[in-house]
Each structure stands twice: as C-alpha cells, then as structure tokens.
C-alpha cells in the first residue's frame, strides 16, 4: 500500500485516496469546435509512460480534494505531490 502525501493533509495510506488518471489534461473550452480526432485525444489518449508520470489523486476519504503528483511507474516512488493549479515540478531526466 502506497503512502501518499496529500498537499493539504500530509502523508496518508493509499486507501484514503482515489486515483484520478493523468494530470494536466484540460477539457477543451469549446468541445463542439473539436473535430473527432482532437476530441479523441482529449477523451481517450493518456500518457502511459514507463517512468515519471504526472497524475491526479483525490484524498477522497480525507479532505476530498484533488491534487497532482509525479510518480515513477517503474518503482511507484513519488517525486512530489502538489496542489491543483501549481506548476508541475521538474522531472529528473532518467
């Protein structure tokens, strides 16, 4: 069970959180202006890297807030967690 640092509450066990998929994907402001290809990118395509991954978590059984995290999918170790709206941290090059 991972330990995850909620930027609002501190370190908590994974069971308190819900995973929210890839981070930093903005819903198009005018979806109706999107062609099918563009809409498909928003709707379906997600980064699936073997390495650093920016992702969303929600402290659903805590403060209930969404936040972002950078985690290495090779080790499951977190580089950082940060609040929504804050810039993503610099990711190590490896």
């Amino acid at each position: 069970m991972l330990i995850i640092r909620c930027p609002y509450c501190g370190e908590r066990p994974e069971l308190e959180f819900a995973y929210g998929g890839q981070a930093h994907i903005a819903r198009p402001l005018q979806p109706s202006d999107q062609n099918d290809e563009d809409w498909n990118v928003y709707l379906n395509l997600r980064a699936n890297p073997k390495g650093w991954h920016s992702e969303r978590w929600r402290h659903i059984h805590g403060c209930a807030r969404f936040f972002n995290a950078v985690r290495d999918t090779r080790t499951d170790h977190f580089l950082a967690t940060y609040k929504m709206g804050e810039p993503a941290p610099e990711v190590p090059s490896t």
Partner: peptide, 13 residues
C-alpha cells in the same frame, strides 16, 4: 491496483 504502474507488483490490500 488503481494506479498505472510497470512494477509487476501491487499492494497487499
């Protein structure tokens, strides 16, 4: 597990 990962392992829970 709920999150994406390439570790070939998951949580005890």
């Amino acid at each position: 597990d709920v999150y994406t990962s390439y570790t070939q392992r998951g949580g005890l829970h």
